[in-house]
């Protein structure tokens, strides 16, 4: 099954709608609770990043027999140093974003922790693609 979502880069209150919708689908499919939780947390972190850092984009999620693969695409500023971005506590979030409760620099480490595989393709000035895989 394939799902496609548009992620707004300006409506912060809508951030997380894709993850919320996809979580509901997984629950309805009767997938185990630990799988649903791994997907929900890693997908939500990636979705928030697409909003607050990527300026919005798209998300495609696919459920197959073996795995769930979710990719987020944006045309934002990209990530200059991925190793640095992966470090717990590293964040370039603005004060406005911090006031909303994000910018702890924990999102990418959380994605790595909860997804079975995390791939990041990024070009500074062009954009970022984050692919999360959760094995079934």
């Amino acid at each position: 099954m394939l799902k496609h979502y548009e992620i707004s880069g300006t409506d912060f209150s809508a951030a997380g709608e894709a993850s919320s919708n996809f979580k509901l689908i997984l629950k309805q499919l009767g997938l185990p609770a630990d799988i649903v939780r791994k997907v929900a947390i890693s997908m939500y972190e990636a979705e928030i990043n697409t909003v607050i850092h990527g300026g919005g984009g798209t998300c495609d999620a696919e459920i197959s027999d073996k795995s769930i693969v979710i990719s987020f695409n944006d045309n934002g500023p990209g990530i200059k140093d991925i190793d640095l971005a992966m470090k717990e506590g590293y964040s370039t979030a603005t004060d406005t974003v911090r006031e909303l409760g994000f910018g702890a620099g924990m999102g990418l480490p959380n994605m790595k922790k909860y997804a079975d595989d995390l791939q990041i393709k990024t070009t500074p000035g062009k954009g970022t693609t984050v692919v999360l895989t959760i094995n079934l």
């Binding site: 951030a15 928030i48 999102g107």
Partner: peptide, 28 residues
């Protein structure tokens, strides 16, 4: 994101933030 790093069943979240993402985070 700290809340998202903390996984426990049947939890209560106490917070001073009041935006929609608090509820989304709780939902996740």
């Amino acid at each position: 994101s700290d809340v998202l790093a903390f996984v426990k069943d049947q939890s209560l979240l106490l917070t001073g933030l009041i935006n929609a993402q608090v509820i989304r985070t709780a939902e996740m």
